[in-house]
Amino acid sequence: MSWKTAYRSFYYETAEEPEDISLAPERTALLMIDVQKTYLEDKDTPEETRRWRPFFERMNETVIPNCVDLMAYCRAKGVEVIHARIACHKQDGRDRSLSQKKPGFNYLLLPKNREDAQIVDELAPEGDEITVEKTTDSALTGTNLRLILRNMGITDVIVAGIFTDQCVSSTVRSLADESFGVVVAEDCCAAATMELHEAELRIINMIYCHVASREEVKGFIREGA
């Protein structure tokens, strides 16, 4: 199924197919969101680790290899690669937003210099690639990313990373509200479950972004000027 007809929600079941996407490399950025070491560690109990096993498998077998491929392709085509990660500046996390202080899964205390807060080795920044550190779900709301993109003349953003239904979705919505064109590489993203992943893609597709496969996204990128 083509990106033009996949992941249709109720709102767009009968909508016309969107126009072809053409991304100018010099005006496009690839934004990698929160693929950090903490999310690939075993959980506190064997039972909880088993519950998360499908997520670990998708990350190691699909998402990380696909992101490596997409990053390499974008770098070769002259697309700016930008990284975002969850990281607080204070050791006790006082600078975190409320959503990261609440009890439960979203409770995140990741001081910026701690090892588990770092981006996984396979997706580490290269050269002078920018990394923004955030204490919010949206990579736009909690950082100077908006200013960085505008200063570099970026108009379109390819989004990849985790979690589809949380930080990816929040960032996509923020970018769309700021009038950036947004494409989500669906096989470069993951949620805790495939059910959550696919449901969120249907929610955001065609309203806030266009959802496409990694290979389709690569095909959107024009030859450099």
Results as ranks from 00 to 15, higher is better:
Thr5Leu: 09
Ala6Leu: 04
Arg8Cys: 04
Phe10Ala: 12
Tyr11Asn: 08
Glu13Pro: 01
Glu13Gln: 02
Ala15Gly: 05
Glu16Ser: 12
Glu17Asp: 15
Glu19Ser: 14
Glu19Arg: 14
Ile21Arg: 02
Ile21Ser: 02
Ala24Met: 09
Glu26Cys: 14
Met32Val: 05
Met32Glu: 15
Ile33Tyr: 11
Ile33Ser: 11
Val35Lys: 01
Thr38Phe: 09
Leu40Val: 12
Asp44Asn: 13
Asp44Trp: 04
Pro46Lys: 00
Glu47Gly: 07
Glu47Ile: 12
Glu48Tyr: 03
Glu48Ile: 03
Thr49Leu: 08
Phe56His: 11
Glu57Leu: 14
Glu61Tyr: 05
Val68Ser: 05
Leu70Asp: 07
Ala72Glu: 13
Ala72Trp: 06
Cys74Gly: 06
Lys77Gln: 15
His83Glu: 07
Ala87Glu: 01
Gly93Ser: 03
Arg96Met: 14
Ser97His: 03
Ser97Ile: 01
Leu98Asn: 13
Leu98Trp: 13
Gln100Ile: 02
Lys101Arg: 15
Pro103Phe: 10
Leu108Glu: 00
Pro111Ile: 07
Lys112Glu: 12
Glu115Phe: 10
Asp116Phe: 08
Val120Asn: 07
Leu123Glu: 10
Thr131Lys: 01
Ser138Asp: 06
Arg146Trp: 04
Met152Trp: 07
Met152Asp: 13
Met152Thr: 06
Gly153Pro: 02
Ile154Leu: 11
Asp156Leu: 12
Val157Cys: 08
Thr164Gln: 12
Asp165Ser: 14
Gln166Cys: 14
Ser170Asn: 10
Thr171Tyr: 05
Ser174Asn: 06
Leu175Gly: 06
Glu186Arg: 14
Cys189Pro: 01
Thr193Tyr: 12
Glu198Pro: 00
Ala199Lys: 06
Glu200Thr: 12
Leu201Ala: 02
Ile204Asn: 00
Ser213Gly: 11
Ser213Thr: 15
Ser213Asp: 05
Glu216Gln: 12
Glu216Ala: 10
Gly219His: 06
Gly219Val: 06
Ile221Phe: 05
Gly224Cys: 10
